[in-house]
Nucleic acid binder design. Structure first.
Length: 470
DNA sequence: AAACCCGTCAACCGCGTACCA
DNA sequence: ATGGTACGCGGTTGACGGGTT
């Protein structure tokens, strides 16, 4: 956030190596802005000191980063905070304190500096004077209730459409991967958030990584909350695994699905070969491509890429879901940093605390206490800290989702047992942001039918009705 | 009209942490 | 293990504009 230089880019040793040029301070000129934008557009974010080194912009790296982050970063939302944002800020502050960056991560398009300034200039004075914190609701209590956490409020706020699509018929399993872009992610600050270009990502860390973008379906929200999209995975369960064994997503969609128009040309999996197969569909306005990746030892992975050139596509009611996912992909595309860590949270079979274990990169279970044994995966403190809060968030999410189900408590308890009995691990991977990937094992989405392979810990399991089967 | 006050916001400062050689 | 570099965070400052005196 607001960092910046003092000529030597001091601060924690963050030193500029080239100090020959007197670095400028103070307000940025339009010329400087143009230079910065041009540089970042061409070279991507990061390595901020190189801006000064390479193109002679007389600003230290910190100042460049700050200027970019607060003014030119893609998807920045300018203007006054909405009342909903205000409420979220107040709620977040009640939970996090002065953790402006964390709040910013939960308020898409807003910077920590913005939030901090807002707090210090609007909320704090009201607080000091004993006035209600919520500008539009003088009667609203100034503390959050025990039953509605800020995270829950956010989930509720952001996920209404998502919840609308959730039905009670399927269990689900979360997974998220972090992908390292194979090349610097370039993103024009001038690009519309709705201009999506296909990604080429690779994940050298992932044993089941492929060379294509992980794709994603995500839930409704006004702007990307997650850097990494959701993806559906189908794991090869046995050496005899057969593609024909009933993996039907996403070809098997009912007519009410918002995806249905995307998958109008049924393509039999018989037609697919074992390695990196793909077929394409071209619904109106969207170029999409679905890929299956598989080999004998690795999980089959389904990728769905799409690009579109008509922003109105996203606003069509029946495309909201796809719109979300495209938006999410855009968020991935514009991710300001390469995700360097892969922190896994998985279901802890045995109790109700479902998110406190970890998985190694290679898929082997890893105790949450074992960070030190996996140097490559050791999370920074922040990530751990975030994990904690995300534990809450995810728990909240889980609390919300089953609320549409028949019996939430039973669902939680029985599904924990179910997981324990049948599944080695299911994961939510936490990075600086978090996301949920969904194995095909289960589906939150009633319009996605997943036939299953059997007798395998990593395979798919039918659970047609939670309330009766779980 | 000038001086002053105050709110807002961009930018700076100092520090901490991650990463790497 | 250590030191250097890069980056990010929270606190703070100062410029600026609008309103008031």
């Amino acid at each position: 956030m607001e960092d910046g230089g003092n000529g030597g880019d001091k601060g924690g040793g963050g030193g500029a190596t080239t100090i020959d040029v007197a670095l400028k301070k103070g307000p940025w000129t339009t010329t400087e802005d143009a230079i910065l934008i041009d540089y970042v557009t061409k070279h991507g974010e990061g390595n901020w000191n190189a801006v000064q080194r390479n193109i002679g912009l007389a600003r230290c790296g910190k100042s460049c980063r700050l200027r970019w982050a607060n003014h030119f970063r893609p998807n920045l939302k300018k203007g006054a905070f909405s009342s909903e944002e205000e409420k979220l800020i107040i709620d977040f502050h009640a939970q996090f304190g002065n953790k402006w960056a964390r709040m910013a991560a939960l308020l898409p398009g807003r910077t920590d500096n913005e939030i901090k300034n807002y707090w210090n200039t609007r909320v704090k004075p009201r607080q000091r004077q004993g006035l209600p914190l919520y500008s539009d609701d003088p009667n609203r209590p100034t503390t959050t209730t025990a039953t509605t956490t800020p995270a829950a409020a956010a989930v509720t706020h952001l996920g209404s459409n998502f919840m609308h699509n959730v039905q009670t018929t399927n269990k689900f399993e979360f997974i998220q991967q972090s992908y390292l872009p194979s090349s610097p992610q370039h993103h024009s600050p001038l690009a519309s958030p709705l201009q999506y270009s296909a990604l080429t990502l690779s994940s050298p860390l992932s044993s089941y990584a492929t060379s294509s973008s992980p794709l994603s379906f995500t839930f409704q929200r006004p702007a990307p909350l997650l850097y990494n999209p959701l993806s559906f995975k189908r794991y090869r369960s046995t050496p005899n695994f057969n593609l024909d064994d009933g993996f039907e997503f996403p070809n098997h969609l009912n007519s009410s699905s918002s995806f249905s128009h995307l998958f109008q040309s049924p393509t039999s999996l018989d037609d697919l070969e074992r390695n990196e197969l793909s077929f394409e569909f071209s619904p109106s306005n969207v170029q999409s491509k679905m890929q299956f990746f598989s080999n004998q030892m690795e999980p089959l992975e389904v990728k769905y890429d799409a690009e579109y050139n008509d922003p109105s596509f996203l606003t069509m009611n029946n495309n909201r879901f796809v719109g979300d996912f495209l938006f999410e992909t855009q968020a991935l595309d514009s991710s300001p940093q390469i995700l360097k860590k892969r922190n896994y949270l998985g279901l802890n079979e045995g109790n109700n605390d479902v998110f406190d274990s970890y998985q190694n990169i290679d898929g082997s279970p890893l105790s949450s206490l074992d960070w030190s044994s996996t140097p490559g995966l050791r999370p920074k403190e922040e990530a751990n800290d975030l994990n904690k809060s995300l534990n809450n968030d995810l728990s909240t999410l889980l609390n919300v989702m089953p609320s549409t189900m028949h019996d939430q408590q039973d669902w939680q308890q029985n599904c924990a047992t179910e997981v324990s009995n049948k599944v080695q691990s299911s994961y939510v991977i936490i990075d600086d942001n978090f996301g949920l990937d969904m194995k095909s094992k289960t589906s939150l989405f009633p319009f996605i039918s997943v036939a299953t392979n059997h007798n395998d810990n990593r395979g798919s399991y039918p659970c047609d009705n939670l309330s009766t089967q779980c």
